[in-house]
Structures are given as structure tokens and as C-alpha cells.
Design a protein around this nucleic acid. Structure first.
Lengths: 203, 203, 203, 203
DNA sequence: AATGAATGAGTCTTCATTCAT
DNA sequence: TATGAATGAAGACTCATTCAT
């Protein structure tokens, strides 16, 4: 899975997380999640990576473009991760489970901060940025819709895939507010619980 | 159901929505949802109810206390509505459905803006306010837990009620982002879809 | 000495300190001294006498006129007290001592707050008010100058009465910052110390 | 005497009066004296040194810290000046005279505005700042007390040095309200008049 | 006389952004 | 690239004053 990140960095699709700019994006994701975009000052951001606020504007045009980068790179990375995971799954049910796991990982793992920001700070994006992110989001969502439609065709799912996806989106993204990875339920188990909501399988 | 609101107003538990202060709370809920708490200025709030910004501070100590009132009154009202709905349900399954309907109404109906604010602007609340709201929230959540535990005992639910509630919380609150009441699915149908995720009934 | 106050109240020269308006003036003197004129709000003033801020403006045209009343009445009262004290003194030295005592009483006694305000909040007075107070002050100061000039003529004082008065003004008014009436030095002793600075007598 | 200032600037104890920050402190002293701390806006301050109000907060955390700097630097400078003056005096009487001259210079000369502010705006300082200034003041006052005690021991002074100092403090600081350096009495003569109040010498 | 909601100008302070070095 | 002083618009909040009741 690490390959995905490396590949995207090599391609130039996303910023190397070890570069100054990459570290800034990561710090921003964390700060925006913890304090909110509006309450995070460019001074906070700069301090987090050890530069002064003025220097930030050598990397980004303005504050909003940092927010956009946070969101953009998170989606790009997670879309690619999903494709990789789907490629290794063999049945419809496996594919849905793979997507659930992948989404949970993106929400609860390294890109968690960015994913939370994606949900919570959407309004802070200007219209142009929203449009760009929305397009990326569509690609991502299409992977889900394809898998759920397949499951429906096989009788694993009873309700409309479109509605199911939306109920699942909420259920999964909300986990960030309660799931504790150091608790007794691991991420795989959580994924199976979620799957049990979505699918009537023999599990 | 209107009785619930009237009763609470009469008690003095929540502000009369037709009073200046009540209209301010409603306007604030809408504005905070649409623009975010930080991006909403006190001038915006005042303009919305036709007063000047300084006059706001006759009703509320500061901006944050408006946010708190929005959240507080929404929870109080919805808790009471839930109790009323539960009182009319006769079986465990009916009770779960009643709760789902009630929560959907609170999210998609009149208090929808306030409920969204409750989720999205939590961080803008100071610690004291958070504590107060958290206590109100506990009362509300206990109603859910009781109903789901009962359903589990009757074999209608397979996963831990605690986890189920949390998955449902996410699924239901997310509806605000996609459900269109003027579409072909009415709120009752949406509630039944959601119920089908939670419960293995003969439905 | 109480007669002086009663006489002035009876004449209508100063406000009865037991009337609402009179209590307001006294409260204002205290508040203006303790917090400063600017930092004292009309709400503070109103609260101190148990009314609401709006009601204040039935007694006084505006905040500044309260300040002016505080100063005006303090000078009027103290001027009258001085005249009474001078009338009872028989020698030049006694007269100077009488003035010192009288001024110390005005600074350290009931009108102390007002006298402090007179010194510290002078700039908060508008030009017209300043002119009015200045005229009252001139009358008061003439009493001093007459007594010191007489003492000079008798050889009790060596330096220019004008300069001496000014040095004394500072020395006496500053006592408000350090003199403690519950300490071991009483006001009479303090007055004699001050006299010893001013006069070369056989004391 | 100029050496004292230069030394303190070199040490970093006080701000260079020619630096932007130093000019701000001087302008603040003047403005605070003339209009009062509360009535002086940060815009006034900024305008006085030719910057915009926002830029002020690069030099000072807030308005109050400007007030504190005004007071702090004035005391530090005057304490040092006093030490230098004392070092050049040879008798007890000379030392008292040196202190009087020094204090008059501080009140009527370059630091006059700051010294006035020190007296008149004390209440506008927050508790912490008051504590800091009070400690500096103690050092300064000890120099006075030592000199007066010595004079008392030599029989030049009859009253308690502590009380004498306080009477003198008032007399000297009040000069700011009346002494006119362009008048016929120069500062040396004024100092001798003040000395004559304090000391029974052969003068 | 008293009330108290409303006014609206004014305050300090914050902060993204710029730019000469 | 980095700095950091300066900008200037905008924000929350305060407060003396007014006025209908």
C-alpha cells in the first residue's frame, strides 16, 4: 500500500510528505482539524514547520490554497489506494469490504486529519476549489457505486446503491468521532460490522 | 408534536421562537450552518433580525453564548420530542423506528440547522459550554441506548448497541448533506431504509 | 462644622447628600477615584445607587456633568469650611495651621474621594466646566494666599507665598496616597508636620 | 548625565529613544499625559510615530504594555541618574539637594511626561505590571530614604525621614502643574526653595 | 421618575498578505 | 527561499445616550 504513495509522489501527483511543502500540508491537515480552518492562523502553520509566516507564501499563493491542497492530495491518495485494494479483491462482497476497509483506513489512519478537514471545512473553500475537489470526489464515488451496484445485482444488497452509499458515507466518516484504535475492536472488525449493515451475506 | 415546543416554551426551558431572542437563535442556527460560526459576524446576525450589532449584546453576553443557546435549545427540544414519540410506540422495533424518524425530523426539519451546527461547530464552544451540552446530549443518547438494547435482547439487532448507535448517528446525521425532501423518497421511507440497516425484521 | 454642610444644603448651593441625586454624587466621587472617570460606566454609577442607567439622565444631562458636580460641590463645601475655620483663628500662624488642617480634612475625610477626583480627572472635564471650576478654585486659593502673605509679612515665612502655597498644595494633596488615619499619627500631628515645613515658628 | 542614558541603552535596559519602538514610548508618554491613557487611542499613538494602528502590535503585545514600558523606562533611567548624581555629592545636605534637583529634572525635563503618567495612570496598569513597577520604585525610594536618614542623623532634619519624603514627593511632583521653566525662577532656585522646606541649614 | 431595549460610533486587537532586504 | 516589519480591513464588544412605555 505504501507503493501507492510512492508512486503518486514519483509522478508528481502529490507532494512528497518529507519535503517542506509536504510537511506543511500535513501540519495544516492536523491544525485545521484540531482548531478549524478559520481559527488556525498562518503563523500557527508556519510555526508548526519552523518557518515564519511570510515564508509560507513562497509555497502557497494564499491560505485557502493550503486548505485545498490538503483536501486534494487526500482524495487523490485515497482514490489510488482504493483502486489498488479493489484490484486484489475477487468477489463483489470482497470488493465492498475492501472499500469499507480502505475508507476506514483513510479516515482513521494517516490521512484522517485531511479527511476530517474535507468534511468539516468544505465551506471554507472558494467556489473554484470546490469544483475541482468535487470532480476528484466523483471519481472516488464512482468506485463505490460500481461495487455496490454489482452487489445489488447479485442480491447482496436490498436498497438502492445510491442511498446505501450515502448512509454508509455518514456511518463511516462519523467513526472518526468515536472509534478508538487502542480499544478492543480492531479496524478489521469495525469494517465487518459496517459490512453487516450494508450486506445480507452468510457472514 | 407542536405541543412539545409549546410546553417547553411555557416552562421557560426554551426561548419562544417568536420573541426577538428566539428569532435571533433561529437566525443564528441558519447562518452558522450556512457560513460557519467563525465566518458569521455579529453584524450578520443582527441584520438577520433587523437590529444593530450592539443591540445583540442585550440578549446575549457574547457571540459564543448565542452558539451555545442554538445547540442547547435544539437538544432540549429534540429530547422532549423523542420522549413523546417513544411514549406512543408499542414494540421494540416501533421504538427504534420512532427514534430514527424523530432524529431524521430533527435533522431535516425545523431544527435541522441547529443540529448541523451542533455537529460542525462543536469546537467553537468553550470548555464550559461543551460540558453543559455534553450533559444534555447524554440524556438524549440514553434514550437511544435503551431502545437498541431492548431490540438486541429481543434478537432484532446483532451487533453491540453502542456501536450500532454510533454507526447510525453518522448515517442519519449525514442525510443533511444529501436528502432532498422534495425528491421521490419521503421521510418515512428514508427512515425505513435506515431501519433496515439496523434491524433484521420481517419488514 | 456640620453646620457648614447644612447651611449650604439649605441654601441650595449643594445637593442634599441624602437625596438620590446627592447619593449619586457621592457614589460617583468614590467610583471615579477608585476606577477613574473613563473606566467608570454609567451603569456602574446607576448600580451603585440602585437605579438603571437610563434613569441617571433624569438627574444629570450627561456623564460629564456628574463629574463636574462632584468637583463643584467639593470645592464649594471646602471653601465654606475654610472660611468658618479662619473665623475662629486669631494669629497668622493659627490661620495657616487652620488652613492646613482644613485642607487635610477635605483630602482625607468625607470629601476625600471628590478631592482626589478633582486632581486626577481634571482633563476629563470639558472646557466650559473647567472654567467654572477654575473660578471656584480661585476663591479658595485666595484664602490661602491671604493667610500666607500675612505670615510672610510677619516674618514667619521666608519664601514667596505663591511658591510656598504650591509646594504645600502638592505635599498636602499627596497625603491621600500614603496617610493612614488608623496609624499612630493623627491628623493634627500631620498638620503640624506640614506646618513645620512652611513656617519658622517657635513650635 | 547623558552618559547614563547611553549606558542604559547600550546595556539593553531601556529602549533606544531613536528607534521606532523608543519613539513610540516617548510619544505615548506625551499623549498619555496630555489626554490620559483611556482617551488616547492606539490610532493616536500610531499616528504620532507615522505608522498604522495594526503595526503597533509588532512592538507591543497590547496597549497596556506600552503604558508599562513608559513607566518602567522612566523609573530605570531616573534611578540611574540619581545614583550618578549622588556619587558626585559630598555632604548629607548636598546629597539631599542632589536628589531634589534630580527629581525635579525628571519631572520637569525630558522624562516629565512619563513621570506624570506614572502618577496619573497608575490605575490603568494591571496587577502584574503594578507589581513590577512597584519593585523598581522601591529601589528608587531607598536612595531617598538613605539620604534623608543620614541628614536626620546629622540634625539637619527634624521630622521622620519617611514622612518628610512623602511630603516632599507631593511637593515636587506637583511642580509639574505650575512650574514654568521660562519664568524667572530657574530649576536650581526651585530646588533650593524645596530644600529649605526640608532642611534647617545655614543657607 | 424609572425602565430597559435599542442605538451606532468608537475601541482594541487580529490576521492574511506584501515586499524590501 | 527566508525574513519580519508594515499594512489595513475586519472583527467582537463597549458604552453613553435616547425614548416609548
Amino acid at each position: 500500500m505504501k507503493y501507492v504513495l510512492e508512486k503518486l509522489v514519483a509522478e508528481g501527483t502529490i507532494t512528497d510528505p518529507k519535503s517542506p511543502k509536504g510537511r506543511l500540508i500535513q501540519a495544516a491537515a492536523r491544525l485545521f482539524r484540531d482548531k478549524g480552518y478559520e481559527r488556525t492562523t498562518v503563523r500557527d502553520l508556519a510555526a508548526e514547520v519552523g518557518i515564519l509566516s511570510g515564508s509560507l507564501f513562497h509555497h502557497f499563493k494564499n491560505k485557502e490554497s493550503i486548505l485545498r491542497a490538503v483536501m486534494e492530495e487526500a482524495i487523490l491518495l485515497n482514490t489510488e489506494s482504493m483502486k489498488a485494494a479493489l484490484a486484489e479483491a475477487n468477489t463483489a462482497e470482497e470488493r465492498v469490504l475492501a472499500l469499507i476497509k480502505c475508507e476506514l483506513k483513510s479516515i482513521l489512519g494517516d490521512t484522517g486529519a485531511a479527511m476530517t478537514v474535507l468534511v468539516f471545512e468544505w465551506r471554507s473553500l472558494n467556489e473554484d476549489s470546490q469544483k475541482v475537489i468535487l470532480e476528484l470526489r466523483d471519481i472516488y464515488e464512482q468506485l463505490w457505486l460500481d461495487a455496490l451496484t454489482e452487489a445489488k445485482d447479485e442480491g447482496l444488497v436490498v436498497i438502492d446503491p445510491f442511498i446505501l452509499r450515502r448512509l454508509l458515507t455518514g456511518a463511516l466518516s462519523w467513526t472518526v468521532n468515536w472509534y478508538d484504535e487502542s480499544g478492543e475492536m480492531n479496524l478489521d472488525q469495525l469494517a465487518r460490522h459496517a459490512l453487516s449493515l450494508a450486506i445480507k451475506s452468510k457472514v
